[in-house]
Nucleic acid binder design. Structure first.
Lengths: 215, 215
DNA sequence: ACTTACTTGCTGACCAGTAAGTAAGATTGG
DNA sequence: CCAATCTTACTTACTGGTCAGCAAGTAAGT
């Protein structure tokens, strides 16, 4: 998507990647609205105009950076795409573990996904699609799991899928604020396990515990 | 905390509130970095200098706005403070329901809490303290619940408390992006229920389900 | 009641700083 | 050579904040 232009010199691709990495750093540490092209340019020893030469506009740089991150993420993954079925849940826990070693990337997604809900934010379509896709994948994993465990699909699958993505995001936020108090992978595992088990075996309602209070 | 100065005219307090409400709207819709004093001033029909007259600086306006929101929130609450013990969990679900009727407030917290993790953001101490306090309160509720149910306190209470706050935040984000696809209160209830039950009755580990795959 | 003295709430002009983007030229690798 | 890369110099547009000043209100003295 990002290169129909004949990119003659090989050094150019390298420079573009450098700029994109710098953009991850800057947008992660300062946000999109507050991070500047000059900040990014400085990290790769060119001027802000040099950055504009490669990406045309700040907005376009942001968009290319987001897809770049996703692409290199998938490339890193143990060959090909995301596992489905119950292994997806373990994959998500492993992702959390990997994320706890790269605060920068976590911060970009955390900051930008929230910034994206603001008026006509350029990253909004990206996160829109991202969450829709992810919820679909997690829901599919739940359906496979339910069949495997001989459980007729409960109506809670949609909620569970959204909840799993939600805890992951929310824990990342708290972890960024208090890295020493939150153990990202461990807590993520706890939460996903709780939600998965709750789909298969709902357990008592919350109000039950309040009634018990009166015993 | 905000007024040791003799605020002589009563109209002044009203104007300050107006400005704070406008700040909620603007910072919610554009973020702190991107929202301007002029934006806020326009909503209350004064100039940006007028806003500075009342609050001194943009940063101070942000801080006063955050505490203002908390104060009026507590004031709305059915007399006095937050319930403890197992009722807290139901209170959190009711909060989610209330939030689903006021997207503006949800958006301020979502946008600003994420923006706060960036370099030396003025709202960072606020959210720092906020999460620490909330995790403490939820943990306390879990301890009460465990005693009530005759369960020896498991080591998962800390994770569970963080996870509950995390789902709530994460679901709000998804709800802001897709209001018609996410049912905020219902999904929050599902997730909290899952986590609470998991503290009392852990259930199988995630890896169990993968082993079953090979049967 | 009325002057005097002072405060409060605000405006309008302005400033220094900073942002993205543009235009035109220098440089250089292939 | 010549197109791709990048710089220099600039424009345009804002932004938060300062400042002087003013109208309206408050308080006190007389």
């Amino acid at each position: 998507m990002n290169s129909n232009i004949p990119r003659s010199r090989p050094a150019t691709q390298r420079k573009r990647s450098e700029i994109l990495e710098a953009a991850i750093d800057i947008f992660g540490n300062k946000g999109y609205a507050n991070g500047t092209l000059a900040d990014i340019a400085e990290q790769v020893d060119i001027t802000h105009s040099g950055v504009l030469h490669h990406f045309g506009s700040k907005q376009n740089l942001l968009l290319e950076m987001l897809t770049y991150r996703d692409e290199t993420d998938v490339a890193d993954l143990d060959e090909r795409h995301i596992p489905d079925g119950p292994e997806l849940f373990l994959h998500l826990v492993r992702t959390a573990l990997a994320n706890s070693r790269r605060a920068g990337v976590v911060q970009v997604y955390t900051v930008l996904s929230a910034e994206a809900v603001t008026d006509e934010h350029p990253a909004r379509p990206f996160f829109d699609k991202r969450y829709t896709t992810l919820r679909g994948e997690v829901s599919a994993a739940f359906r496979v799991l339910c069949e495997q465990e001989g459980v007729t699909e409960p109506g809670t699958i949609g909620s569970a899928a959204a909840s799993i993505l939600a805890v992951m995001d929310g824990l990342q936020l708290q972890w960024l604020l208090h890295p020493q108090e939150i153990e990202l992978a461990e807590t993520t595992e706890f939460a996903i396990r709780a939600i998965v088990n709750s789909v298969l075996t709902p357990g008592p309602e919350l109000s039950e515990y309040v009634r018990n209070h009166k015993d």
